[in-house]
């Protein structure tokens, strides 16, 4: 397993988070990829509790997070403020950003270099 960082995918829809994970696993079999999609009852939304639990349960202490829409980011921020882990929230295009990070983590590229590769994909403000 790549020990540098795990990836957390947060989406309003469980199927989107799981589907993106499926896409990433193809190129990143040694990267820990966790998800927090939708609400507990399966409906659309983002759940602070699910995000928080995903971060807590994750074996890695460094977690890079990608998200779909802005409200997912707000919940991620609160979760980041309430954990001791190093949680980084990336404002990159959800699919392309996470795919880039996953491929480069798999190739054991260093985090700051991955960060540079992500910079043109930062499309959210």
């Amino acid at each position: 397993m790549n020990k540098q960082a795990a990836l957390l995918l947060v989406s309003h829809v469980e199927g989107i988070a799981e589907g993106l994970k499926e896409l990433l696993i193809q190129v990143a079999t040694d990267v820990t990829i966790i998800t927090a999609g939708g609400l507990d009852d399966g409906s659309v939304g983002t759940s602070f509790d699910r995000i928080s639990a995903a971060i807590t349960d994750c074996e890695s202490n460094t977690i890079w997070c990608f998200y779909d829409l802005g409200s997912a980011k707000m919940n991620l921020e609160i979760a980041a403020e309430t954990t001791d882990k190093e949680v980084m929230i990336l404002d990159a295009a959800f699919v392309e950003g996470a795919y880039t990070a996953a491929s480069l983590l798999q190739a054991e590229v260093k985090l700051d270099e991955i960060m540079q590769q992500l910079s043109p994909l930062m499309v959210k403000n």
């Binding site: 609400l39 409906s43 939304g45 983002t46 759940s47 602070f48 509790d49 802005g70 409200s71 707000m74 919940n75 921020e77 609160i78």
Partner: peptide, 15 residues
Amino acid sequence: LVSKVGGASGPLYGS
């Protein structure tokens, strides 16, 4: 509110 609302208004009112 942060835990239960489920939309953007959750983290916002919660904050």
